[in-house]
């Protein structure tokens, strides 16, 4: 059992983490690098006239990019472990786990882990104003746990009431509210922050879809042996 869980999680997590890192470097990194020019004060966009969009020449920063690949693989492997544990519990209760249902698991994972926290704490560019990090981390963990439990109630509850309770659980963290900054202080242009947030979520969806599909596939192959 231990081995089966680890095999699915490592395959899926590593593949998803690698693809997420490449997508991140291609689509998200330019916004991060541009934001750093504003965060460091090299550029400002307040004041007289518009600021031209800074050119970010295509360049590979070996250490920085390698660390991104490494940590992306690590984080998605961690997520994959949690996902296969949930898959295994569901399978014991009669759910079918394979590549096709794995895709749904992956998308649900994305909703719980990235979309739900982002609904009240949008992915931040460096330099954005934000509340104290410890409080936001606590809210982040609680929101993911509540959303995951809510989705499970909707997916596996056998009547209307568990589904309604699930919906309430999903909404509750946002009704309570995330820890928020008291003032707007970000030096980064809103155009950049908007693109960054939607790209970060898009990359997350792709990575999680791959994560769930591969985890489900490897899991079902393990069954056949």
């Amino acid at each position: 059992m231990f081995q089966k869980l680890l095999t699915s999680a490592l395959f899926a997590g590593f593949a998803a983490g690698l693809i997420a890192a490449l997508l991140q470097l291609a689509f998200v990194q330019p916004s991060l690098l541009r934001a750093e020019l504003f965060e460091s004060g090299t550029l400002t966009h307040f004041g007289s006239g518009p600021t031209p969009v800074p050119e970010i020449p295509f360049a590979i920063d070996p250490v920085r990019d390698a660390l991104s690949v490494l940590f992306s693989a690590l984080i998605y492997t961690g997520y994959a472990m949690l996902l296969v544990v949930a898959m295994s519990v569901a399978e014991n209760r009669g759910a079918r786990i394979d590549a096709r249902t794995g895709l749904i698991w992956g998308v649900a994972g994305f909703v719980a882990v990235q979309l739900a926290p982002a609904f009240s704490l949008p992915p931040e560019l460096p330099g954005s104003a934000a509340a104290e990090v410890g409080a936001r981390q606590v809210w982040w963990f609680v929101t993911i746990a509540a959303t995951g439990a809510g989705l499970a109630l909707i997916a596996f509850g056998r009547s209307l009431w568990p589904a309604l309770a699930g919906a309430v659980l999903i909404l509750l963290p946002h009704l309570v509210g995330a820890p928020h900054h008291a003032s707007y202080a970000g030096p980064v242009p809103p155009e950049l922050a908007g693109l960054f947030a939607s790209r970060a979520l898009g990359v997350g969806l792709m990575a999680w879809a791959i994560l769930g599909t591969i985890a489900g596939y490897v899991w079902s192959r393990g069954e056949a042996q």
């Binding site: 998200v28 991060l32 940590f71 992306s72 961690g78 990235q114 992915p123 934000a130 990090v133």
Partner: peptide, 26 residues
């Protein structure tokens, strides 16, 4: 550890991924 620990070196190494995956970073 990879996403939330605030130790300096770890934070710097994981920095870009944390931002890109929407973790509360700073």
């Amino acid at each position: 550890v990879a996403g939330h620990a605030q130790a300096g070196a770890l934070h710097d190494a994981a920095h870009d991924v944390r931002h890109a995956t929407g973790f509360p970073c700073h």
